[in-house]
Design a protein around this nucleic acid. Structure first.
Lengths: 364, 364
DNA sequence: CTGAAAGCGCTTACAG
DNA sequence: CTGAAAGCGCTTACAG
């Protein structure tokens, strides 16, 4: 019997405001006033009550509170519109929806807003709509730095907490940033690449130029990628070339790429800094270019097929659903639960291959 | 303005039992009786009420329900005792604790029980304790098949739902299995290995024999590993050897290993099927054996150091905290929320390296 | 078989 | 500045 262990995790501090009121010789109304800083309480009783709350380690019963309160809390979410049915930005939205299902009982309502990644004005319009309502919290993807800064200045003035998702604007204060460490993700890609290709081969780094402002993400990934090779391959056995692609749907794309491969016959690996790796996969497949390791980002439908066919070898992923979920939950914990929240919340950098992809597709 | 999108996720079906009662011309007590199948209602009114519930799409307010009910729900958790402070089995427990924090408001209490992995009798003792109480749900790691089957037969007889965690007993019915797909995890390890070492090298598969019954996990990993090479390397360029290790803390361990390496000088990769890869890392480090790729499992403290030093190249991980969390939440959703739950819940197979480990260490 | 009433812990006017 | 009362939606004896 010596090493049996039974343990109840249950903690039984069920102090009620009634208990506090009794101990302080006041009514529960008064206790409630000090708990919520609603004023109208004499300093003496206020302090007495505060002390008792401390002593008894009072934790409000959130269920009862949510039930009694009539006020409904509103969160506004503003994301880029998804490029397609299966596009990337549907995924954070899935997480938002899940979070909503969990917390709606607390009288929370959520409005979602979308803007065009190519059009700062569409972002501005939405932020105006948001500010007309009087939200209790906001989640935004700050793609457009200038417009975002303007927006959050307004939020700050009105004391509305906001959370950044996906990309960060470091110098702004915010309740929390939810996203990925892009620099590390670049380093990780480099390691996988380095492991997978022979010495003395050439690596192509592909950067899709997109009509968006805040490209910091992609630049960080590239930096991390280069840094890895600087550290591990000081003799430059592996040669790195960066190529910028304007528009892969352009007719000249194939020709330019073929030309490039002729000029650099030793390419054994390609790293694409964003989710558009499927363009490259298509190209490699079309021209029967084998024996080239291909690493890209994000588990979107277009990429999935190529991953399964092993044209794409690795996808680095960032749990977008979890990010959406966490963003909402962070607001909830701050606004409703009054709990401290983490100011930075990095999702893991997942390495996804044909072999483990099935366990990343679903989000619970 | 054409492509603006605003959408409220809020769904406003706030039907109360009061509304149902009114519509059915009965009291709320009667409605409650049919909702909870507490009998004592005439068939006619019962059916009338059921129909109205259907029509109005009534969803009970769980908050109010939890507040009003006095009954406390008990879940029992039974895990192997952790080998150390930082041992593996602390991690699922962390997840259990987090789940508890989230659901305790609903009047749930949790008791945790531990057994010795080497001692079926300690498991049996705990299950007896559990059965003496009258839990509303159980989470168990069914390491000992025979004893587990006996236990769950008892649970079944008393209609107590139970969830398997970590390892599965396929032929048993259960509310849910939470764990990893070990076979796929083995395949994944093989792919990483295959990518990382030259052709015509030897791979060592290490299997730590442990004094436990249900080793199915480890066997599946090994099978997956072999299967990958059978499929991708039919010409057997890479040679695989399996070695079973009895006790790595034994004095003869070093000698035997050295002997083995002398006999097989071409070993370029080692795959360890469980979390004890740190023994091998220590060995490789001690004897300055470089240029050998080492792949193991689980982010335990002993392995972390070697991962950071890149003696271990890849750790395959299975989100043990999440498993503990999910196990409890699954019971909760079934017992309290009366929601359908997934009968199989596979956690992702994460590839962890020096570069991304920081984002797997924390569990939120 | 059915209804009326008290209560869960908190919030919110309202009266003083 | 403070208290008493009604109410949130549900549950639980109790009376009939």
């Amino acid at each position: 019997m010596s090493n049996l262990k039974i343990q109840a995790i249950e903690a039984n501090n069920r102090t009620r405001i009634k208990d506090i009121a009794k101990k302080a010789n006041v009514s529960i109304g008064t206790v409630d006033r000090v708990i919520h800083n609603r004023g109208e309480v004499s300093k003496a009783t206020r302090e007495k009550i505060l002390k008792i709350i401390e002593e008894l380690d009072y934790q409000p019963n959130i269920l009862a509170s949510a039930l009694a309160t009539k006020k409904t809390i509103t969160f506004d979410i503003i994301f880029p519109a998804s490029q397609s049915e299966e596009g990337y930005w549907n995924k954070p939205m899935t997480g938002v929806r899940k979070a909503f299902q969990e917390i709606r009982q607390y009288g929370i309502s959520i409005s979602t807003h979308q803007f065009q990644q190519s059009d700062p004005e569409s972002f501005k319009q939405q932020t105006r709509v948001i500010l007309q309502g009087n939200p209790d919290g906001v989640v935004l993807a700050p793609f457009f730095s200038r417009e975002s800064k303007e927006f959050i200045q307004n939020l700050k003035d009105r004391n509305i907490p906001y959370v950044f998702i996906d990309s960060n604007i470091k110098e702004c204060e915010k309740l929390s940033y939810i996203g990925q460490d892009s620099f590390q993700s670049g380093k990780l890609a480099a390691k996988l690449m380095n492991f997978s290709i022979p010495v003395d081969s050439t690596i192509l780094v592909l950067h899709f130029a997109r009509a968006m402002d805040n490209q910091n993400h992609l630049i960080q990934r590239e930096k991390g990628f280069y840094e890895y090779f600087e550290q591990t391959d000081p003799e430059k056995h592996k040669k790195l070339i960066t190529l910028e692609i304007e528009n892969p749907s352009d007719l000249s794309f194939d020709r330019k790429m073929l030309l490039f491969f002729e000029a650099n016959p030793n390419i054994r690996g390609i790293f694409v800094t964003n989710s558009q790796v499927y363009w490259i996969a298509r190209f490699l497949e079309k021209y029967g270019l084998r024996d080239i390791r291909l690493i890209g980002h994000d588990l979107i439908a277009e990429n999935l097929d190529f991953l399964k066919k092993e044209v794409v070898d690795f996808l680095l992923c960032q749990r977008p659903e979890e990010q959406g979920y966490n963003a909402v939950i962070t607001l909830f914990e701050h606004v409703i639960m009054k709990k401290p929240v983490k100011t930075e919340n990095y999702t893991s950098i997942d390495i996804v291959t044909k072999e483990n992809v099935d366990y990343y597709k679903e989000f619970n």
